[in-house]
Design a protein around this nucleic acid. Structure first.
Lengths: 211, 211
DNA sequence: CTTTATTTGGCAGTCACTGCCAATAATGTT
DNA sequence: AACATTATTGGCAGTGACTGCCAAATAAAG
């Protein structure tokens, strides 16, 4: 229990590891975009990222998993928006103010959009994307639990969280599909926000009590 | 365009191919259950199914994909139930009469339950499961499109379909987790049906029009 | 500079999976 | 019955993703 005197090289912080993974992810996605997933080898990714192939496989269990950090960035960003949603404020208002869809990912907007687009053609990428979104559902559940007045691990809340997450995924796919190279037209963006807000509202405000 | 005189060996019907895949799937799942996924090789699966390794890889692109036919069976079964839902009947009533959760899969109930359980520990299986469920969403959309009076490929309907599918997945996971070797206690089953019915009702009957 | 703890790289090996071609099976034709 | 034709299967060699193992390199403390 007591703090043993720390000696030797200190373990890399989680922050550092995340950073390395993100760095690799950027190089990997760049290669995926240029040559396609199948035509990109682990060796190429490692070389581009300036690490050995061995450490690449230590960071990612598979080639396709290299997209995770980039995708996570955008998913995490939306979670943060949801978390900051004040209970009394209308959701659409909150989103209009705080939600700039994918692009909280800063510099990586284009990369994230490209990956999501690629998931439609590359089954392995789609699988990674879906697993990632499911992994984010507990966080959704926490937000919804407050609104619903039920524990976050109750089945009801988990179902709502899963439903919310899936609806948001569909809306995101739709947005990404209509996004051009120039970016996203403001009108489309506005409509997207409304869609998301409607879906979330519908899910968090149950209709007249049935049964 | 005209029917060219058919000569030589006729191609296998889709039905036959599906049957072969299902047969392989059963053997693969049996091995997965016994030894785990990692410890089961493609060679073992092929040998158990009485085919060459080469044809195994022709039928399935990956080892984990071997679970698809079995899982599809149970997903398809629920879709059939949904499709047969008469518009005027209460959903809970319909489910009570027509929905025996996973087990329309006939002989394969245990295998299906086992696979769904395994998806919690085996990321690759989880990925396959999620991809499979997403692939089923368009079918959900068709059912919902009728009720919502909108085209099945509209964003609204697709979002509802995705949400429905995800909620159902969560409910199924919950059911599978509580299922014992003896089977599923009737009380639990009944509760499960109610959960599913509630979720679907909530999704298909939107609350008071917002905005 | 030595000691200790941690990360990284190199190397060999396994195994999932593919391309290619020969063998076999299932049909119609002569 | 023998043959021609087409679809499926199997064998074989090869590629590449990934792992285990150990040695080198790095970063801190004594």
């Amino acid at each position: 229990m007591a703090e043993r005197p720390r000696r030797g090289r200190p373990p890399a912080s989680d922050r550092q590891k995340q950073q390395q993974r993100l760095d690799i992810s950027r190089h990997a996605v760049a290669l995926f975009r240029e040559h396609g997933v199948a035509a990109t080898s682990g060796e190429q990714i490692a070389r581009a990222a300036g690490i050995s192939e061995r450490t690449l496989w230590r960071c990612f269990r598979s080639k396709e998993a290299c997209v995770e950090p980039l995708l996570s960035k955008s998913i995490d960003a939306f979670q943060a928006v949801l978390r900051s949603w004040p209970p009394e404020l209308d959701l659409a208002e909150h989103l209009r103010a705080a939600y700039t869809p994918v692009l909280d990912s800063g510099e990586d907007i284009e990369a994230v959009l490209a990956v999501i687009r690629m998931t439609h053609d590359e089954p392995a990428l789609r699988a990674a994307y879906l697993v990632l979104r499911e992994r984010a559902e507990p966080a959704f559940a926490e937000v919804l639990a407050d609104r619903m007045g039920m524990p976050a691990d109750s089945l009801e809340v988990r179902m709502q969280a899963a439903a919310t997450s899936a609806a948001l995924r569909e809306a995101t796919d739709d947005l990404v599909a209509t996004a051009t190279a120039d970016g996203i037209p403001p009108a489309v963006l506005q409509e997207h926000r409304e869609h998301v807000a409607d879906a979330l509202r519908r899910l968090t405000h149950p209709p007249a009590p049935s049964v």
